[in-house]
Design a protein around this nucleic acid. Sequence first.
DNA 1: CCGAAATTAGGCCAATCGGTCAAAAAGGTC
DNA 2: GACCTTTTTGACCGATTGGCCTAATTTCGG
Lengths: 185, 185
Amino acid sequence: MDAAIATVNDVGYHRASLAQIAARAGIAKSIISYHFEGKEQLLLYVIDEVFTGVEKVTRAAVAAADDPAARLAAFARGYLTFVRDHREEMIAAVEIAVSHRDVDGMPLYLAESDEENALLEGMVADGIAAGQFRQVDLTVARTTVIHALDGALTRSQIDARVDLDAYGDQLIPMLLAALGYRPDG
Amino acid sequence: MDAAIATVNDVGYHRASLAQIAARAGIAKSIISYHFEGKEQLLLYVIDEVFTGVEKVTRAAVAAADDPAARLAAFARGYLTFVRDHREEMIAAVEIAVSHRDVDGMPLYLAESDEENALLEGMVADGIAAGQFRQVDLTVARTTVIHALDGALTRSQIDARVDLDAYGDQLIPMLLAALGYRPDG
DNA sequence: CCGAAATTAGGCCAATCGGTCAAAAAGGTC
DNA sequence: GACCTTTTTGACCGATTGGCCTAATTTCGG
C-alpha cells in the first residue's frame, strides 16, 4: 500500500500500473492480485483508509468545540493538521478520487460524502441560527469551505515546505469572515 | 476537438483513447495523428484554447472595473460567466489539466499560471493598499479565490442545473468578506 | 480536365495493461 | 522430518493502447 501511494504520487493514477507498484515494493505483481481483488480495489482501499482518517480527525475536532463558528474553525484546523501529518497519503487519495472512474465513467470525487456535507451544512446552519453567521447559501458555503481547504492541499503539493499551520492561521479567519462571522451575535 | 471534449467528459482522461475519440467523431483515428502531433498535443490544445478563453474574459472584466474590490468581483463574475457559457469545455479542460502528466510525472495543474497569480495577487495587494481589504496573505488569498471558483465548476459538474449567476451572487460577497472588504476604506 | 498535394481510411505494429495459472517456496503443526 | 496450507513467483494470456504505414480518395490550382 505504501508502494501504491508512492507510485500514484510519482507517476499519477493512470500510469500507476500493477507492474510499477509491484516493482517499487520489490514483489511480483501477482501478489497484489492475490491479496487484493484487483488494482481498483487496492486504490479504493487507499482512499477509504485516508478519508476515514481525515473524517475521524475532523469529527473529533468539531466535537470538542462548543459553538458553530468554533466548530467550523476546528473542522478546518483538523483538516489542515491531517494534511500536515499525512501529506503523501492525502495527495495520493485525492489523486485517486479525481482520476478513478467507475464503469459508467462517473468520477469518484463527484460522489459527494453526504455525511461531510451534512456536518458542514449543519455547522453553517447552526451558525446562522445562532446569529454568528450571515444568511449565506448552505451549498455555496459548504462547497467553498471544502474547496478552500483543498487549496491548502494543492499549495502543499506544489511546495512541500509550506507551513500548513500558518496557512490555517490565515485561512480560517478568512473563512469565518466569508460567512459574516460576528462573535456571539 | 468537440469529440475529444465530449469523450473526455464521458469516460475521463485516461480512457479517452484515440479510438474512442475517432469513433465519436465518425472518423478514422489516423486522422487525429495526421492533424495533431499525437493524442497529447490534441488534449493540450484543448486546454490551451479553453484557458486562453477564460483568461481573455476575466482580463476584460477586470479591466472594466475601477477599484480593487470591484476588479476582484469582476474576475469572479467573469470566470463564472465563462463556466456558464462553456461548461463542457471547462470541465474537459480541468479534467485534462488534472490528469495529464508530463514525462517526469508532473501534473499539469501544479504548474501554476504566473500571469493569473500576478493578476489575482495584484488585485488583493492593491485592495490592501487602498484600505479596502484586510492585511491577508497574498498566496492564501489567491489560492482560496481560485479554489472557491473551482468549487462552482465542481458544483455545476455535479448538477448541470445549478444557476451559476445565483451562485456568484452568493459567492462573490463571501469572497469580498473573506478579504475583510470595507467599501472605500 | 488533369496531376500534384492534401486528406482519409483501415490494417498493422510493438508495448503495456490487468489478470490468471501452475508450480515453487515458505510457514506452521503434528 | 512429513504434511498441509498459505504465500510468492515468473511465465503467460487476451485486450487495449498510441502511433505508423500504405493505399485509396478528395481537393484544387493551372
